Simulated scan of single mutants.
Amino acid sequence: MTAATANRTRPRAFWSDARFVLGILLVVASIAGVWFVVTAARQTVPVFAAARTIVAGTALSGDDLRVVEVALGQMGDAYLAPESLEEGLVATRTIPSGELVPQSAVGDASAATVTTVVLRSAVDVPGSVEPGSVVEVWSAPLIERGRYDTPRILVADATVVSVTRDDSMIGGGSAALEVVIPRADVAATLAAMSDESALSVVPSAGAGR
């Protein structure tokens, strides 16, 4: 037998066949991986979005929320889902209208550190003050009828829930506001209202940052 004949009849090495099979397996795995990623990206889950601006301390209800279908992948558990809505949940921070509601932005009402009060500003508030605005509440203690002491900050960090302006007042407008304030400021705020102090609401210096 010649050397040429021996070369033609020699069986193919096993490692060569194994490498071919391995290459096929890698191609199949690559295709399966791409299919999995594309399929996962197309899957959506129902979560809540804010139907309006929700300020801190607001008890969450169906009127505040709307269900949207979004593709969140592995982050789906980070947002409030319809089955997670329970009585007693409140917003722990302001959630702008249209924003998906994070689980971290809601909590139990019993643990809330803020509450809402309704107060009347002695003067009208700027047009920029609207639900969700961060404001300061100033108080000028009453000395005698028609005379007030120097104004001072009563609440340094309040969030507006609603504002009703009244331009019919003689000598200038006034406004009634529902605001969220820290529970630590409730006693002083109620005392100022009962003492007939003149209250004023102004935008917070850092509100535009």
Rank of each mutant, 00 (worst) to 15 (best):
I170A: 12
V47P: 13
D17K: 14
L22C: 07
A29D: 10
G107K: 09
V180A: 15
V67Q: 12
A191M: 06
R8H: 09
L100W: 15
D108G: 08
T115L: 07
F48E: 07
R165F: 01
E144C: 02
P82A: 07
E136M: 14
M193N: 06
P46N: 12
V201S: 08
S128L: 12
A176D: 15
L190Y: 03
L154D: 04
G171T: 08
V34Q: 08
G171M: 11
A112K: 03
A158Q: 12
V28H: 02
G132K: 01
V37I: 15
D17G: 05
S16Q: 09
E99I: 05
S61F: 04
A4R: 12
S97I: 11
V117I: 10
V34D: 02
A6F: 14
L25M: 13
L119H: 04
A4I: 09
A91C: 00
S133P: 01
V70L: 10
A6L: 14
T164W: 01
V55N: 00
L72D: 10
D195Q: 15
A198G: 13
L72H: 08
S97W: 01
A175W: 08
T58L: 00
S174D: 10
R147Q: 13
G173T: 11
E69L: 13
S200P: 01
S104Y: 09
T92M: 10
P96M: 05
R183K: 15
T53F: 03
A175R: 05
G73C: 13
S110M: 03
D166C: 05
V27S: 03
R52N: 15
V125R: 01
S97Q: 15
V34F: 09
S168E: 12
E87G: 03
R209I: 13
P46Q: 13
A158H: 13
A105P: 08
E196W: 03
A18R: 14
M75L: 11
A91N: 01
L80K: 06
S168K: 10
E83F: 04
V123L: 09
S128A: 11
V179A: 09
D157P: 00
S168W: 04
T115F: 12
T115V: 14
S197N: 14
P203I: 02
V21C: 11
V45K: 12
R152V: 05
R19N: 00
I170Y: 05
V123S: 10
S204W: 05
D195C: 08
G33C: 03
A111V: 04
L199T: 03
V38Y: 03
L177H: 07
D17W: 14
D185I: 07
T53C: 06
R120N: 04
A6R: 15
A40Q: 15
G57M: 08
V129P: 07
R19Q: 03
W35Q: 03
M193G: 04
S30Q: 11
V55R: 00
F36H: 06
M169E: 14
E144A: 11
I24Q: 02
Q43I: 04
T94F: 12
I24S: 06
A187L: 09
P96Q: 02
F36M: 07
V55T: 09
V106E: 06
E86N: 12
M169P: 06
A29P: 00
I143T: 06
G206C: 00
L25H: 02
Q103Y: 04
A198P: 06
I54Y: 01
